[in-house]
Lab assay of single mutants.
Amino acid sequence: SRSVIRSIIKSSKLNIDHKDYLLDLLNDVKGSKDLKEFHKMLTAILA
């Protein structure tokens, strides 16, 4: 869910600018399909 993804971003080791950017992107995501794609992208970034 959106709140879980937000929590993953906030607890990541990324610097604050990257976190803010990803949180802004997350706010722009519409629909469950796009949310799944965003989660895939985030997982790849944090891997």
Rank of each mutant, 00 (worst) to 15 (best):
S1L: 15
S1T: 14
S1H: 14
S1C: 08
R2W: 09
R2N: 08
R2C: 04
S3L: 09
S3T: 09
S3Q: 13
S3K: 15
S3G: 12
S3M: 14
S3I: 08
S3A: 13
V4G: 09
V4M: 10
V4Y: 12
V4L: 11
V4K: 11
I5L: 14
I5K: 00
I5E: 02
I5C: 03
I5T: 03
R6K: 13
R6D: 05
R6F: 06
R6W: 04
R6P: 01
S7Y: 11
S7P: 00
S7R: 11
S7N: 14
S7G: 11
S7I: 07
I8S: 04
I8E: 05
I8A: 07
I8G: 02
I8P: 00
I8W: 05
I9Y: 00
I9W: 01
I9V: 04
I9T: 00
K10D: 03
K10N: 09
S11E: 09
S11F: 09
S12V: 03
S12I: 03
S12M: 06
S12E: 01
K13E: 05
K13W: 11
K13S: 12
K13N: 15
L14M: 04
L14W: 02
L14T: 02
L14P: 00
L14Q: 01
L14Y: 04
L14H: 00
L14G: 02
N15W: 05
N15M: 07
N15T: 15
N15S: 15
N15I: 05
I16P: 15
I16R: 14
I16G: 12
I16Y: 07
I16S: 15
D17V: 14
D17K: 15
D17P: 08
D17G: 04
H18N: 05
H18V: 15
H18I: 15
H18Q: 14
H18P: 02
H18C: 10
K19E: 02
K19D: 00
K19A: 03
K19W: 03
K19H: 02
K19I: 04
K19S: 02
D20Y: 13
D20I: 15
D20T: 15
D20E: 14
D20H: 15
D20F: 08
Y21S: 06
Y21M: 07
Y21L: 09
Y21N: 06
L22D: 00
L23Y: 07
L23K: 01
L23R: 03
L23G: 00
L23A: 02
L23E: 04
L23P: 00
D24G: 13
D24R: 14
D24L: 13
D24E: 13
D24F: 09
D24V: 10
L25K: 11
L25D: 01
L26A: 01
L26I: 03
L26P: 00
L26N: 00
N27W: 04
N27C: 05
D28A: 12
D28F: 08
D28I: 07
D28K: 14
D28P: 04
D28V: 09
D28E: 13
D28W: 05
V29I: 12
V29D: 02
V29S: 06
V29E: 02
V29F: 03
V29Y: 06
K30E: 10
K30G: 06
K30Q: 07
K30F: 05
K30I: 07
K30R: 12
G31N: 11
G31T: 14
G31I: 04
G31Q: 04
S32D: 14
S32V: 09
S32W: 10
S32A: 13
S32L: 11
S32R: 10
S32N: 12
S32F: 07
K33D: 13
K33C: 04
K33Y: 08
D34Y: 07
D34Q: 15
D34P: 10
D34F: 06
D34C: 06
L35E: 03
L35V: 05
L35A: 03
L35N: 01
K36F: 14
K36S: 08
K36P: 03
K36A: 14
K36L: 13
E37C: 05
E37K: 15
F38T: 02
F38S: 00
F38D: 00
H39F: 14
H39A: 14
H39L: 14
H39W: 15
H39S: 08
K40Q: 10
K40I: 13
K40T: 07
K40W: 03
K40L: 12
M41R: 07
M41N: 05
M41H: 06
M41E: 06
M41L: 07
M41A: 03
M41Y: 11
M41C: 04
L42T: 02
L42H: 01
L42K: 00
T43Y: 10
T43M: 15
T43V: 13
T43W: 12
T43I: 14
T43P: 02
A44F: 14
I45N: 02
I45A: 06
I45D: 02
I45C: 03
I45M: 09
L46D: 01
L46G: 02
L46F: 06
L46Y: 02
L46E: 02
L46I: 11
A47E: 08
A47L: 11
